[in-house]
Amino acid sequence: MPEQHPMRGIVLMSASLLLFSCLDAITKHLLQTYSVPLVIWARYTVHWLLMLFILGPSMGLRLLDARRPGLMLLRSLCLLATSGCGVAAFSQMPLAETSAIIYIAPVMVALLAGPMLGEKVHRHHWLAMGIGFCGMLLIAHPGGQVTPTGILLAVGAAAFFSLYQILTRKLSLTENLWALVFHPALTGSLLMSLSLPLIWPDTLPPWPDLLQLGAIGGIAVLGYAVQTRAFRHAPVSQLVPLGYSQLIWSTLLGWLVFNHLPDGPAIIGIALIAVGGLVVIRSQRTKA
């Protein structure tokens, strides 16, 4: 058992969330020039190639281990659908509002864990869902910076991510940790490569754009690695609530990079979604 250093874990977790927010910002910037499928392909391809380069020599074929291949494939497809809906939503809406809607996923997981995992759904889970729904209504208020299509895409991303997390819970009991990270990246890259002849631009992207396309995969790997290290130094109950600080980073980056700040109702809506998620996290800590 690694020695616990809670403050180190908190710092690492915060750094990983900043990395993921930067990933979203670079993705949104690239979407001003390139298609959604191309950006997703670049992210997944660089992701699995880096894992193969870093872990391949030591793990070899163990990266492909799958005791339950059907569920592993379904989980990978859920994450690919999450990326597709989420990236498409970022192409239509600001960072902060899109990130906030996607962050209703923890509440969805708490509700889906009942029928899918046999876990008890408590009243405060429904309360949290109600709070989060009210937050979504405020973000979607008339005159805001969101679109109906963008909202549907963000909700779709949250729904698919919820299914992905449920499947992760089931598979984490039987599957290798790094195989769980490697399979979705490889599956996503292979499937998106089928569309590459149709989505690749007529001319080679300039070097700054190629670096950014590569960076989104690299940042994803680095973010997961830093976050995994954080959980070695501090309990999950201390680190999971920090996840909602990513909404702060998304808001700041949306302002600094895209010159957008949410208006008053949207800020209240973002806060309500965070509160709903924290209610679920608090109840899980109490139960544990």
Score class of each variant (00 low, 15 high):
K120C: 07
L153W: 11
I101Q: 04
I281N: 10
P235W: 08
I102T: 09
N259I: 03
T228D: 06
F20S: 00
L23F: 02
L194A: 15
F182S: 02
L210A: 00
D65L: 05
S193A: 15
A266E: 04
V107K: 08
P206Y: 07
I219P: 05
R67F: 10
L186T: 08
I216D: 04
W41F: 15
P206S: 02
I248A: 15
G84C: 11
G86A: 13
P2S: 14
V109F: 12
L17R: 08
L127K: 04
T45R: 15
S283P: 05
L222M: 13
Q238V: 04
I267V: 12
G214L: 05
G114S: 05
I151Y: 02
Q246G: 06
I139K: 07
I26P: 06
A140R: 06
H233R: 05
I40R: 11
I104C: 11
G223Q: 06
S193K: 07
A113D: 03
E97F: 10
L64N: 12
W207Y: 13
F53T: 14
L167K: 00
S99P: 02
A271W: 07
A220N: 13
L38E: 14
H233L: 04
M59I: 03
R285S: 15
V39Q: 08
L252C: 10
L117E: 14
D263K: 01
T203P: 00
V109M: 09
D209S: 13
L252R: 01
M72E: 11
L30R: 06
Q32N: 14
V279N: 12
V46G: 12
S245M: 08
L173F: 02
W48L: 12
T228R: 11
P265M: 14
Q212F: 01
L111Y: 05
V236G: 05
G56R: 06
P262L: 04
L18K: 03
P206L: 10
A15W: 01
E97D: 14
A88N: 02
F90A: 03
V226W: 02
F160Q: 07
T149M: 05
A81R: 04
G218S: 06
K120R: 12
L180C: 00
Q165H: 05
I270N: 09
H124A: 00
H47Q: 14
R68H: 10
P201L: 13
A154E: 02
G56K: 06
S162Q: 03
A25Q: 05
M192E: 09
Y44G: 11
L191Q: 01
T45V: 15
E175I: 00
M136A: 08
G70S: 06
V236S: 09
L222S: 12
G118D: 10
G143N: 04
G144H: 03
V280M: 10
G156Q: 03
T149A: 14
I151Q: 07
I199Q: 00
V109Y: 11
A158F: 01
I10H: 08
A158N: 07
I267R: 03
W249G: 08
Q227W: 01
A25K: 06
T45K: 14
L177Y: 09
W207S: 07
P115Y: 11
C134H: 02
C22E: 02
G84I: 07
R232L: 06
L256A: 10
P184M: 03
M51D: 07
A113G: 13
I10F: 13
W249K: 11
S35T: 15
L252D: 09
L74Y: 04
P148M: 05
P37Y: 08
